[in-house]
Design a protein around this nucleic acid. Sequence first.
RNA 1: GGAUGCUUAGCUCAGCUGGGAGAGCGCCACCCUUACAAGGUGGAUGUCGUGGGUUCGAGCCCCUCAGCAUCCACCA
Length: 876
Amino acid sequence: MILEKNYDHKIVESDKYDKWVKSKVFEQHDVAKTPFTIVIPPPNVTGKLHIGHAWDTTIQDMIIRYKHLKGFDTLWVPGSDHAGIATQAKVEAKLREEGISRYDLGREKFLDVCWKWKHDYHDFIFSQWAMLGLALDYSKERFTLDEGLSNAVKKVFVDLYNKGLIYQGQRIINWDPVFKTALSNVEVIYEETESKMYYFKYYLEDKSDYLTVATTRPETMFGDVCVVVNPNDSRFTKYIGKKVYNPANNDLLPIIADEYVDIEFGTGAMKCTPAHDPNDYILGKKYNLDCINVMNPDGSMNEVCGKYQGQDRFECRENLVKQIESDGLLVKIEKHINQVGYSERSHAIVEPYLSKQWFVKMAPLAKQALDNQQSDNKVNFIPERFEKIFTNWMSGVEDWCISRQLWWGHRIPAWYNNTTNEVYVGEQPPKDIENYHQDEDVLDTWFSSALWPFSTLGFPDTTNPLYQRYFPTDILVTGYDIIFFWVSRMIFQSLEFTKQIPFKNCLIHGLIRDPFGKKMSKSVGNAVDPKDIIDRYGCDSLRFFLTTNSAPGLDLRYSEEKISSSRNFINKIWNASRFVMMNLGEDYKFSEIDYDNASIFDKDILKKLNKTIEQLNISMDKYDFVIAGSTLYNFIYDDFCSIYIEMAKICLNSSDEEKKKATMNTLYYVLDSILVMIHPFIPFVTEEIYQNLHNSKEACIFSDASWPKIIDKYNDFNEETSDYINEIIKTIRIMKSEQNIAPNKQIKLVIESSDNKLVSSLKDNVQYISRFAFADEVDFVNKLDNKENGFSFVLSKISLFVPSKDLINVEEEIIKVNKEIEKFRSEIDRGEKMLSNPSFTSKAPKEKIALEEEKLANNKLSLEKSLQKLEDLKKM
RNA sequence: GGAUGCUUAGCUCAGCUGGGAGAGCGCCACCCUUACAAGGUGGAUGUCGUGGGUUCGAGCCCCUCAGCAUCCACCA
């Protein structure tokens, strides 16, 4: 079949994915093969996939397709994440537009709305996976809130509780006053913020003197329980044990001493608010101080704040400072730059807040994960440096706050006795359920995500065949921004519950940035929608751009030019394929290449194909797609299109049927190999070409093809003739370009050489020279005496001479030749120096020495010839 | 305060275990050569951030400094 003249991605990409899914090619599993598993990082069911998802999933798709073609039984598990806070926030926002709050609906009905939302978005996500061509096994699709995964969550929670690794406690946690829920440490983003430092006078009980105390959060003063100074601070020794008035409410606060206080910082005297600061809380515990909570869950001030009750914390701050100022107790206000914590989701300033929450005790789990990284069973991070990021974080990790005051999520499997308030924790509700009420909270979304690699494969049923065959998974692919949230938690949960690592490799990529290097984000409005790009350039172009334009682990800058050049490359493949098919004809059937009848260029491309396969195997196995991509690019563009296809035209026009057939088979064979090798990068267009090449609309690379193999025989080709021919053609082209001679103007060419073998071989292949150098007359001589009236060139073992009546500018030529001579001399000088250096000859590898010796010999030969050429020119 | 990454052609970036620097885009010249003008042929452009060290040999390894970026931890 002949391809259309123009590559049209819309046509090519329109019908493929449906077919793949309907024929279930991604769902077929051959148990005779070695399994290879990936679980997709489940996207949130909150919105559309962005270009970062496209990058992440394309990498995985490439790996799956590559491994499949290599003969593995690949499984890629799809799924999505309920994304507790994120989804609930969106659903609540939508309800708010209708003037409804979640409390109006009640828990049950609110969850119904969430489920409906989930179904709508799931379809949307599916359509985007389709657009990207992902080889997912939909029969294994999972959702973090589905029954099986919920069972896994319960099982893990209860087990950890029974082992004492989950506990409930009053602690200072990060509170999001907008979503009114606790957050874990990693859900807080610290940003440098300009705020104010307020200095207040705290008068002694007898009003004889005062201390100046500084704070950035005056509103928390209603919760102050003492003032702390360092016992070694001579300025304050006399005050220790005395009492001062709190300027906010006139309460008397004791002055205590603790070495925690930094003498150098602020005034050296610190107010202590155990209910609103984690460090103060520790002090509070140490000295058995009261914890006075001054805020409501929404960030407004509570009843302990007197007239400020009901005011927002920031409104209160302002008003309180005014009051203190009018009381004459304000010393000064200074600008202060500090790191302020914001909620990752609501972007509200997080309030350190004392509350009762559920926690995972991290120390034993972290130790297990860290110890494991010291063993042979460690998770292999790619690039390696990310292992350090992981272990650094893990070794300092604090207990994980896992309860969230939300409705959308896994409800905590804990019940309280209605009368005794005693806690019951179990996978099933207590039998006398009427005497109990369940904990209102749900679990952190990441608690269920942490189980994803094994919960999707059947855990907690470890006899599940899926789990038995496909776990541990082979590789996890994700961005570095999610190492703490997800990667680390999967590792320690997996080690604890399956006694195995969740994935053998962890491939980390960067983030996508806009053309100016800024992070892409919806709020800034610089985000690029993958759908737009796919509409304009096609999925294949996007995929090729995404996978071949950044070094491992580094960020990728979005560049439309590069997407466009990817498309041009695909167009090149399209047209080369079109050429091949046009020349094979309708009735062509591939048969083994008759190597004895193959031309030097057939043999040359087959050898280069071997080399390409070899290099590609190495880079693909290392997941180094940039190198793999450029290896393919160079082979396809330069070796196959620019050289081989051009040269093949000679044999295709040959009257020697055997030769012609050998070339046709080579063209077919190399193109077929190319399609398979580059299929993981650009699955759609390769499928289209493959179907045409194989004359079957049913042909499918994923299920029918296998990765090309290196054929040793092809490596035996070791002739220099093809190189010389290429060099001759190039030399003549340069000459014509420099002399302003039209490229297609026919010339006469004399080839001079005393190497009879080479000459004879060049004579056999003279058609290539005639055609591509546009030399309608080519003579071979052993020695040419008269090189006047023409251009001569030196190519080590041979010289070229082009007679020309319109004489060249002799002076210019002499300058050129002198430059050449200069170059050869310096090269010879370099080579001789190197080779006469005993340190080099004794230490350098043999191959390197041989290479240098060969270079030197060639340079000497060329120098000799150039000198001769100079003599000839001087005679003119 | 701790850590990591980056600095290579006008721009955006590759450069795999050290063996005389590459791509895409852009730029210049010529060309509709029967797959491709989304093309072909040829060309110009780099003291590989600074300073030192190791080595026969450094863009690559070690140290110093500078600039940029990111992460972690933080003092009221």
